[in-house]
Design a protein around this nucleic acid. Sequence first.
DNA 1: ATGGTAGCTGGGCTA
Length: 263
Amino acid sequence: MVKIATWNVNSIKQRELACAEWLRQASPDVLCLQELKCQTPAFPKAVFEDLGYNCAVLGQKGFNGVAILSKFPIDEAIGALPGDATDEQSRYLEAVLSVPGGPAIRVASIYAPNGNPAPSPKFDYKLGWFSRLESHVKGLLAFEEPLILAGDYNIIPRPTDVYNPANWIEDALFRIEARRAFRRVTHLGLTDALMACNSAGGQYTFWDYQAGAWQKDLGLRIDHLLLSADAAKGLVASGVDRKPRGWDKPSDHTPVWAELRLT
DNA sequence: ATGGTAGCTGGGCTA
């Protein structure tokens, strides 16, 4: 069984101890991290290596930044989403992991652009970024291997994935153009792991720091694990772990995980 | 109508 998870930590320096604690509690084989907010050399690798994880890191000064922690050996790490050589934002890291006794799996840690306000150049960047993701994933799916695209997509897929959808119609996370861009990716043949296991609404993964959103459970579901057919056929379970959102000095996101039996 | 919080940074941007 392979357990894989994703967590936007909103600064790895601030969340180093929480991250280590969650790894001890949940012991995933793979954890994809987003919003490191640190440069690559400053990533606290030793903490995670001591817990038995290999680290692939794509940092950036101040913003963004993604990583893949893996108990399996990491091969072929690629730190860029193809399609725009001028894009300097660290939002995509892909690696092949050698799973002992099973097929190799390809994993991407994704931090899609927020895109607010909309419309604006930032929203255009978001739509362009999803268009690049669509093209790239189309190529990856031709490999017919277990592929897991895990991360913060900054997309609310359905009205039941936000506490008050009417208030979010104009927001870049819920605007119809953004949802369509996301759906064009999933319609290539990807399975939303959490939805495949339980399609009920209200399974939020993010709660704003402001206005007591966490205490009132006013959340969004924007962190997703998308699986290729070769990964989805082994899907056993998936869930949201709310505990870390309730810890002291939390990230505004909480981990999402899935368990796969791959053969 | 506004501001409410957090993080990086050293003023303002991003979320």
